[in-house]
């Protein structure tokens, strides 16, 4: 690969973020642990009755994963802005949107992928029928990158502000309502033995749109954040 080419720049950013995550691999376990804790609490809250748990399993898994992703999103750009790495990314010859896309990809690999891996465990703790499992995994595989991309736009917007945290959650809620509706809807349909590909297709359409637009929007938002 020629240094300075677009491919090498993407590889450099991706490899950098993955290496950084690996050096602090304890942090990767945090969202997974969080999801486990929340899922464990549900049977205590609503009772251990299998039929009731199976009824809410899909929804609980999605909300839990959503919150776990949100938890890890806040740091997406903040560290880079604080140590000056963001300036280096912005001045690079490649489009910022592309580099931001790579950062989101690295974030998805390190925080959402582990959640997808443990999702079957979470779902079976809540007695989700095995028949609905493929729908759950497919929906998660499309919904989590969508959440990471949408979240990246909002994190970029709050990057220049004093506080985020709750504000980020408030801003993210309207954006993830459709994601949760279609993802959990697919699982619910699968559980009832209905065709569940239509909501998955809507999610897929959303993902395609987000892959194109979200990095551009994040880059524009980061430029606003760096104007200080």
């Amino acid at each position: 690969m020629i240094p300075g080419s677009t491919a090498s720049a993407c590889a450099a950013v991706l490899q950098r973020d993955l290496t950084l995550a690996w050096r602090r691999r304890g942090d990767i376990a945090m969202p997974v642990l969080y999801a486990l804790i929340v899922t464990t609490l549900f049977p205590f809250a609503v009772g251990p009755e299998p039929a009731l748990l199976a009824r809410i399993a899909g929804g609980v898994v999605f909300v839990t994963v959503l919150l776990a992703v949100l938890l890890s999103l806040d740091q997406l750009f903040r560290a880079d802005i604080e140590d000056g790495s963001m300036e280096q990314l912005m001045l690079a010859p490649q489009p910022l949107a592309l580099l931001v896309g790579m950062k989101v990809l690295a974030h998805w690999i390190t925080s959402a992928l582990p959640l997808i891996v443990v999702a079957p465990l979470l779902a079976s703790m809540l007695r989700l029928p095995a028949a609905a499992m493929p729908a759950l995994l497919l929906a998660l595989a499309i919904a989590t990158p969508l959440l990471s991309l949408l979240g990246a736009v909002l994190v970029a917007l709050t990057a220049g502000s004093r506080r985020s945290g709750m504000l980020l959650a408030l801003m993210l809620l309207p954006l993830c309502v459709p994601v949760v509706i279609f993802a959990a809807g697919a699982v619910a349909a699968a559980q009832e033995g209905l065709p569940w590909l239509a909501p998955i297709a809507w999610l897929g359409a959303g993902l395609v749109m987000a892959v194109v637009l979200a990095p551009l929007a994040s880059a524009a938002a980061l430029r606003i954040a760096m104007e200080s």
Binding site: L157, L167, L170, M171, A217, A221, A225
Partner: peptide
């Protein structure tokens, strides 16, 4: 609406806050 109001007021620099919130 509340997210927009919240974002606007979370910036030190009003103008920057306005631009970020307009984007939102």
């Amino acid at each position: 609406y509340l997210g927009i109001v919240g974002l606007y007021h979370s910036f030190e620099d009003r103008r920057q806050g306005a631009r970020a919130a307009c984007f939102l």
